[in-house]
Simulated assay, not measured.
Amino acid sequence: MAKEIAKENPVIDALKKLKEEEAELMSKLKPVQEAIGALEKIVDKSVKKVKPAKENGDNSTTEELALEAAGEAQ
Rank of each mutant, 00 (worst) to 15 (best):
N56A: 15
A53P: 01
E4H: 12
E64T: 05
A35C: 01
I36G: 02
E21D: 12
N9M: 00
L67G: 03
I12G: 01
P52A: 04
E20D: 15
K48Q: 10
N9I: 00
A53Q: 12
E64K: 08
K16D: 10
I36T: 06
S60F: 04
V47N: 03
K3E: 13
A14L: 11
A38Y: 05
K3M: 13
D44P: 01
E40L: 10
D13L: 13
Q74F: 13
M1R: 14
L15Q: 10
K48E: 09
A23H: 08
K30H: 04
A70T: 15
N9T: 03
Q33P: 09
L25D: 02
E20F: 05
E8Q: 12
E64A: 12
V11F: 14
Q74G: 14
A69D: 07
L67S: 15
E72H: 04
V11Q: 08
Q33A: 14
A73M: 06
K45D: 01
V43C: 05
E63L: 12
N9W: 08
A66S: 05
M1I: 09
G37V: 01
P10L: 06
A14S: 05
D44G: 02
T61F: 03
A6N: 11
E72K: 13
E63Q: 14
E34K: 04
T61E: 01
E4Y: 13
A14K: 14
E4S: 15
P52C: 02
M26V: 12
A14M: 09
D13H: 12
A35W: 04
K7F: 14
E34H: 06
P31T: 00
K7T: 01
V32S: 03
A66V: 11
K3G: 12
A69N: 01
L25M: 11
T62D: 14
N56F: 15
A6Q: 09
E22H: 10
S60W: 04
K30R: 08
K28R: 13
K30Q: 08
V11Y: 10
P52G: 07
K48W: 00
A35Q: 08
A35N: 07
V32F: 09
D13V: 15
G71F: 03
A2R: 14
N9D: 15
P10Y: 04
D13K: 15
L29Y: 08
L39Y: 11
K49R: 09
E21S: 03
D13S: 14
L67P: 00
K45R: 15
A2W: 13
K48S: 07
A38V: 03
A2Y: 15
I12A: 04
V11E: 08
I12E: 08
A23W: 05
K54V: 07
I36Q: 06
G57N: 02
N56E: 13
K41I: 07
K28N: 02
K49N: 09
P10M: 02
L67Q: 13
E8P: 03
K28T: 00
Q74P: 08
I42C: 03
K19A: 10
E68M: 13
I42D: 04
M26W: 10
D58S: 03
S60Q: 04
D44V: 04
K51C: 06
V50Y: 05
E40H: 05
K28M: 02
K51N: 09
L18W: 11
E20A: 10
N9P: 03
E4K: 15
E20N: 01
A66W: 00
